[in-house]
Design a protein around this nucleic acid. Structure first.
Lengths: 198, 198, 198, 198
DNA sequence: TATGAATGAGTCTTCATTCAT
DNA sequence: AATGAATGAAGACTCATTCAT
């Protein structure tokens, strides 16, 4: 039954994801999951014995399906183009209300022990920094943009994104605010904007 | 006995603050407060009928005691000096583990209705932006620093700080990371660092 | 201070009466009374140590102020006229929404021990029966009405009134229903109605 | 296990009925029910989430088991016989101490909103009136009894019964009082009593 | 595997009553 | 006399978790 079992587990994870999107992490009860899945209480416990375990798997399945730098990047995109594409993607993410795990993710990592947090949350952050750094370095090399501290610049972009994300949950952020910040950041890298970012 | 009563209310707020620092917002129960204060269940309800009301008062008493730009600024500080002082203060705040309401504040505002959030959380943010913008403008005027978009720059600093704050709760941030980010930000404003901040 | 004290007690009783009218007996708390009177909790206890004691005094003060057969009866009223006057008075009482202790009274006597109930509630009932019986006897003697069982008839009227009272609290009674019942009862006593009661 | 579940629900209703009989409606707590049933607090909530809901079901199960005009009425009973049978049944009901929901029912309907009360409590009343009216009409037609206002007479009987019921809870009523009232009422309908009711 | 009834600990909230002032 | 802060018991309700079937 490994197959059937795996499919059921997958179903639970998907339904649970919806619940976490809607209610965050801390308020979700086993009953919420059970109701969303249409299975029995006992049935759920066969697969997950806490909302925490379940959320971990939701996160994991999340990573599989998302790739930071989407496939839209063509072979001969310039560094600036790649940066803009990345930022546009992030903007969508930040503004997404429905279907966003953002609140749940923060609530979850606020709870976790430091060592675990640093392992998992930081990993994603660091790998994004690496890629950004490489893009900036390439851009600097080609003269497209100006930056003598590519690593700091990359970290700075990611920190700013974290800031915008959490602000979207606390005070709210407008699309315009995001645009202006992105343009500003790009300008510090010597990239002058001429388009209206989407 | 309005006096005695007020003092007791103050005591509860102080003890509650400690509880919120230690446990965040969402996990705190009336019992936690009661235990921390050493009073009876019913006694607490004489003063506050929910952890929410209590937390609101904790926040309020917080504002009274903190002033963003501390008294350390002398008459003839330069714009760059003021900026650095401000950032050093923020760094302390971000790194403070004990006695920090940060986690509680985020958990609280994640819950609140958008309109309330925008009213209260945003206000502090905006007023900090205003002050920063003014400082940057002054610095630019005096030639100390270079910036042709003072408002965006000010917002950017605050967004970055939000990012660092929330990162301190999720993946953790080191003093070094903060320093490097501060130095980077200052460098984009044409301020070259020669000191070891802190 | 006996005088001042007595006046305060009277004030409490009056305010409490309003509370009992509005909320019945069982739901009334000491706090309700305290709030209505504008005195302190401790203050109330100096005069009454339970809602029960208080209600007993409300009832007592009630009896003082009400006289079943109101002063409207003139010297030479006929028996039928007296009966009608009595019923009209009762009708007002039954239909009164504001300011009626009816619900509180029932809730109170439902609780009390049988011996107490029989002593106090029954007394009023019996004395009303006595008066009614006397009126009917007089009416029968003068040929105004026909009744060979005056006591049963008197009890019957009172039982019917109890029925209408409790029905006003459960299913509700209309003025019309009451009128029709009164006319019917009078007709069994040989009194034909020619007026519109009011 | 819908079957087992239904049986348990039935058990709770039965035990709850006993509790309501003993203590009325307003004083009954979920704990009382829990104790009477020998189940856990949470267990009770699986079936009923308030004493009100529970009481409604007790009432409902009550209606199933009771039929106002019991099966004792034979084909060729006379109207007067039917009336007497009905009244005897009511007398038993009024005098029953153990196992009577009377107090609970009054306390319950005193609380309910007018529209609900009129819907449910009044319905039973009205249907009883209808039947009585019909019986009286038949009796009048056959000359067994005398009545030119059958509807008023029917209502009057029901009102009187309400009166006796509520009196049984306040001042108490003796079997003798009931008998004498019944005989009186019958006499107003031209039915002369020759038996000792009971 | 899967069900869902059952448990009991834990939280919130209210209230009568007391007591120092 | 009078105040009102304080108490603690009691009731409502929820939830993670277990277990017989």
């Amino acid at each position: 039954m490994g197959d059937k079992s795996a499919r059921k587990k997958q179903l639970i994870i998907e339904k649970a994801r919806e619940v976490f999107c809607k209610r965050g992490y801390k308020d979700v009860t086993m009953k919420d999951i059970v109701d969303a899945c249409g299975i029995s209480r006992g049935g759920l416990y066969l697969y997950f014995d806490s909302t925490r375990k379940l959320f971990l798997e939701v996160l994991e399945s999340e990573q599989d399906s998302e790739d930071i730098f989407s496939g839209k990047i063509s072979e001969n995109s310039t560094a600036a183009e790649i940066l803009v594409l990345f930022l546009v993607e992030q903007k969508k993410e930040i503004l997404r209300k429905r279907n966003s795990l953002l609140k749940a993710i923060y609530e979850f990592y606020f709870e976790e022990k430091p060592d675990i947090k640093e392992d998992s949350y930081r990993k994603d952050f660091d790998s994004a920094v690496s890629v950004l750094q490489r893009v900036i370095e390439l851009g600097a090399a080609s003269g497209e943009l100006v930056c003598d501290k590519p690593e700091e610049a990359a970290v700075n972009i990611m920190v700013m994104l974290e800031g915008l994300k959490v602000m979207s949950l606390t005070m709210g952020v407008s699309a315009e605010l995001i645009d202006r910040q992105f343009i500003y950041i790009l300008s510090t890298l010597g990239v002058e904007d001429d388009s209206d970012a989407q």
